[in-house]
Design a protein around this nucleic acid. Structure first.
Lengths: 168, 168
DNA sequence: TCCAAACCCTTGGATGTCCTAGTATATTGC
DNA sequence: GCAATATACTAGGACATCCAAGGGTTTGGA
């Protein structure tokens, strides 16, 4: 996966689409494919930055979410909704974070069905340190110019709203 | 994972970043997180469209790539480079496509190390049908406006080039 | 009151991705 | 010509994601 290609494979795919009579959807195809590839690149950078902490992005996101909750605790279903992942993915992440002593499960005081995830002090400390590294090494060197960042936030925000993520 | 949230969780995260003194990287953080989430949404749409064909996106991409190769065949390492995934991921995809009778492996005529992936006629037919459905149901209804598509292609194209994907 | 429907979490299974080796074949350099 | 290095593919393992199904808890309508 190493050396750069001589040509942009996505631009090539777009040309192929046009040549085959699908010119009307060639551009959206290219945009969507570019999003998939960009996500892959960014995820790799993030995972590299988090590796020294023994964290993956999924686990980091959960830690970060908990660290912003006033009480440092959230119900699992709340975390699932806010992170927008399947409940089983949260179960998986909590299992591993709990093994590492970064969070712990506790019963909900009034609803016997619900489990609360609580940040331990180790978890809170690690979240803070990991965030500092992510800010410095990934978000601070994204490679996006300032106006591009604003455009991405706007375009993808509209997309996510229309997709039903939030604020129907 | 169903009902829309009352508020945009990514916008909330951006505000949290600003509140905690990381205002300088809050916007890139939000943009990157939005890319991750958008990819997730798009992938889900694509997988839904492909499910009736027994295809996943990874397998479809390989089929589509082969269908654009003149001879309908490519070396595994070439496919790995063009799809920008790890060689083992190609091995995995080829295994399953071969089981389904959509591709077959053949030895390279002059290089004993190399394996060629060839499209079968079933594979070619299925690629064509799957592409038609993807074009109609996903790319044709992306939810992106036309100028947004152009902006995404430009912004993400620059990003991918700077990330070393192509055209050093 | 009480049972069905709704909700919450977990287990088990299928996929995909990557990394680290290991085997086989080519290429290079002496 | 032969050993050392490089390249190509695959096997095994770690993770993450989703779906389907199961067991426990609450809620709500008859």
């Amino acid at each position: 996966m190493g050396t750069p290609l001589p040509r942009d494979p996505i631009a090539d795919a777009q040309r192929n689409w046009e040549r085959h009579g699908w010119a009307d959807v060639a551009a959206p195809m290219a945009a969507i494919t570019a999003i998939m590839r960009t996500q892959q690149i960014l995820l790799a950078r993030i995972e590299t930055a988090l590796k020294p902490f023994g964290l993956t992005f999924a686990r980091y996101e959960l830690l970060a979410l908990l660290s912003f909750a006033r009480s440092g605790a959230l119900p699992m279903n709340k975390a699932s909704a806010l992170l927008q992942v399947h409940p089983t993915s949260v179960t998986n992440a909590v299992d591993r974070l709990q093994e590492a002593g970064l969070v712990l499960r506790s019963p909900h005081p009034t609803d016997g069905r619900t489990t609360l995830i609580e940040l331990t002090s180790e978890g809170r400390t690690l979240a803070k340190r990991a965030t500092a590294v992510l800010n410095a090494e990934v978000f601070g060197r994204s490679g996006f110019e300032e106006p591009e960042v604003e455009q991405l936030i706007r375009i993808l925000g509209n997309f996510r709203r229309n997709a039903g993520d939030f604020g129907g």
